[in-house]
């Protein structure tokens, strides 16, 4: 067996290993994205119940309730998981919805009757649990995306990635509102 044949064999082996590894990483990221969607679906299913209870008491928060309804519709809309832009848009909408829901939960504090309503208490508890599951799936997704993006961007797997058209995926980041610093004075008035 000639030396050049062995070298070609080794190169092919490495190439195949990189190819398999890239596909595995891509699939893992997609699986993680599905995991997020499962949790987002749970949240979306929960929102109508919360809104139904809230509407009875929160006359002055109509705008917020409408925003939540619209964002919910946007999040539950079907999208192409292969398209980076669509994934990005979907995750952005999900995070905006989380922000608005957070605002709603804070607003509940101003309505003592609603706050003490047992159905609302139970719904809030379930909602918080769903949010924790979403946070967990986000951590899994971001870790899978980090592995994929590193493989897509770093040589030599970047060459294989270009050849088989595997591209990077967007991170699921917290929305700008939750990243903003908290003004403690506002709450301690």
């Amino acid at each position: 067996m000639s030396t050049s044949f062995i070298i070609i064999l080794i190169i092919c082996g490495i190439g195949y290993y990189l190819y398999v590894s890239l596909v595995q990483k891509k699939n893992k990221a997609k699986e993680a994205l599905s995991g997020i969607d499962v949790q987002l679906k749970k949240r979306a299913d929960l929102i109508p119940n919360i809104l139904k209870i809230a509407q009875k008491f929160m006359e002055h928060e109509k705008e917020l309730l409408t925003d939540i309804t619209e964002l919910r519709a946007q999040v539950t809309k079907d999208y192409d998981r292969e398209q980076k832009a669509e994934v990005e848009e979907h995750l952005k909408a999900a995070e905006m919805l989380a922000g608005k829901m957070g605002k709603l939960m804070i607003a509940v504090e101003d309505y003592p009757d609603l706050k003490s309503d047992q159905t609302m208490v139970q719904a809030q508890q379930t909602y918080n649990e769903v949010e924790e599951h979403i946070a967990a799936s986000r951590r899994f997704y971001n870790s899978a995306v980090t592995e994929l993006n590193n493989a897509v961007e770093i040589f030599p797997s970047s060459v294989i990635a270009k050849m088989i058209k595997i591209s990077d995926m967007p991170f699921y980041e917290a929305d700008e509102a939750s990243k903003a610093p908290v003004d403690a004075d506002q709450y301690l008035k």
Binding site: A32, G35, Q39, H133, A135, A136, R139
Partner: peptide, 10 residues
């Protein structure tokens, strides 16, 4: 279950 593991291991 990767998601459940992360949910538990806060």
């Amino acid at each position: 279950d990767q998601v459940e593991a992360r949910y538990l291991l806060t």
